[in-house]
């Protein structure tokens, strides 16, 4: 599903975000990408959805060679991925329902399908009572759920989440992870960046640990140490 070979990312000015990373994530996996702030987690994810491209190395995501992907193919890649960024990036002037239906609209669904599918997604992330609220009326956890529902609009093969529990208290964080586990059980591969040790240690999953841009650990049933 995701494959990196000797991937390095060096920014202009010489700061090294990632160095020489080789790893593979299989279909249906649930993987935590951990590391301190500044260790390169966001950069890792951005490489996968072609927000940046590597200085060196080969990246393969959902059978597309991302490292040499022409610009016009980026939308094709992104439709196979669900992306939840560090900030939820909700549209402030739209309700939960509209934020989700917006992405279905963008993807070209019919008006009839949009309503039905939006409701399904709202049920999935359990936001039935908040469907007609605006983002400022939602808690942090609820906003993250909207972002997750929106990312699922295209029925992605892989869901990439960048610190979705970043500023949530532990209970809410666990709820978000449970939601992601539910999505994962339905077949979606999940890669979640986090520096939240309690989450990682709660149920042991595969852990990739970054430190100063280097992949220092890859454990199938890892913990946050």
């Amino acid at each position: 599903m995701i494959k990196l070979e000797n991937v390095s990312l060096v920014f202009q000015g010489g700061s090294v975000a990632l160095s020489n990373i080789t790893t593979e994530i299989k279909e249906g996996d649930f993987v935590y990408l951990i590391g301190h702030s500044g260790s390169g987690k966001s950069s890792f994810l951005k490489l996968l959805y072609r927000d940046t491209y590597p200085t060196k190395g080969i990246i393969d995501v959902v059978d597309m060679e991302v490292s040499s992907l022409p610009k016009w193919k980026i939308p094709i890649l992104r439709r196979k991925l669900g992306i939840v960024t560090q900030e939820p990036q909700l549209l402030e002037d739209r309700t939960t329902f509209e934020n989700i239906s917006f992405s279905l609209e963008v993807l070209g669904y019919d008006a009839k399908e949009i309503d039905a599918k939006t409701s399904t997604l709202i049920d999935l992330v359990e936001l039935q009572d908040n469907a007609y609220k605006f983002p400022y009326q939602l808690s942090g956890g609820e906003q993250t759920r909207v972002a997750i529902a929106r990312a699922l609009a295209s029925n992605p093969l892989v869901l990439l989440c960048d610190e979705p529990t970043g500023n949530l208290d532990p209970d809410l964080s666990i709820q978000i992870v449970s939601l992601l586990e539910k999505i994962n059980r339905a077949g979606t591969t999940i890669l979640m960046a986090t520096h939240d040790s309690s989450i990682v240690n709660r149920r042991k999953k595969r852990v990739l640990e970054l430190s100063d841009g280097k992949l220092i650990r890859d454990e199938t049933e890892g913990t946050y140490v």
């Binding site: 980026i74 939308p75 094709i76 890649l77 963008v106 993807l107 990312a151």
Partner: peptide, 15 residues
């Protein structure tokens, strides 16, 4: 922001 979201979701540039 809307444009950023559209790009993330995978809207074509024509769209």
């Amino acid at each position: 922001k809307e444009i950023k979201v559209m790009k993330l979701i995978g809207a074509s540039s024509t769209y």
